[in-house]
Design a protein around this nucleic acid. Structure first.
Length: 209
DNA sequence: TGCCAGGCCCTCTTTAGGGCCTT
């Protein structure tokens, strides 16, 4: 399914988790997501979820999410059922999408719903479009591009919103340099896989079509 | 028992190693 990002919908999402790898038993503890329609953030989704295991002090400090907060939250399965309906059929975006896609796949597999749309990665695209940025961490890029934020980092909805603004900024910056009328999600996804040194040639060839 | 990520990308590369990103 290929959706035109200027006229259709993209879901930008972010997970907070107990660690780095679902293959090592780590679980999602919060999901945040933003729906973008015609370049506008129109709908938000945010839920804590209880993995029924304690999170360590590092994660509590890193995210501000505590064991007490999670103990009062709905189970992961209940939240992921609801979230799977929110993202159903849409193209997906995340910053370092390989991380979020692995947790999305793992959590949806647990509820027998492991089908979701194609993912594009704002981090891989940022490395190609902003090679002069100090680094390509989300927080750095938000500051580098002076994107809207409320100073909250490492919470799912805040990070998803900042990633959404970064996504829109990337599209606008590409349009400033190349004669695109619209940039499809498929082009963005291919851009994230284009060899970095071939970025200019790729965008020129796509914009001339 | 003890340990444990994974994908991308650059380079002093390709029969490899290490930094960057995500929590």
């Amino acid at each position: 399914m290929l959706l035109d990002i200027n006229s259709d919908t993209v879901i930008v999402l972010d997970f907070e988790t107990t660690g780095l790898s679902p293959d090592c038993g780590d679980r999602a503890i919060e999901i945040g997501a933003v729906k973008i329609v015609n370049g506008v953030l129109v709908e938000r989704f945010q839920k804590l979820m209880n993995p029924h295991r304690r999170i360590d002090a590092f994660i509590e400090q890193y995210t501000g999410i505590t064991n007490k907060m999670l103990s009062k939250s709905a189970p992961c399965a209940e939240v992921m059922h609801e979230f799977s309906e929110f993202i159903d059929g849409y193209n997906l975006v995340a910053h370092n999408a390989s991380f979020d896609s692995r947790f999305l796949d793992a959590e949806l597999s647990r509820i027998k719903r492991n089908q979701f749309g194609p993912f594009a990665c704002s981090m891989l695209i940022s490395r190609r479009i902003y090679p002069d940025a100090p680094n390509h961490k989300l927080g750095t890029l938000v500051e580098y591009k002076n994107l809207p934020n409320d100073g909250t980092f490492h919470r799912a909805l805040a990070d998803a919103e900042m990633t959404a603004y970064l996504w829109l900024e990337i599209i606008e910056d590409i349009k400033l340099e190349y004669p695109f009328e619209c940039i499809s999600f498929d082009i963005m996804k291919k851009l994230s896989r284009t060899p970095k040194k071939a970025t200019n040639d790729f965008l020129l060839s796509m914009s001339n079509n």
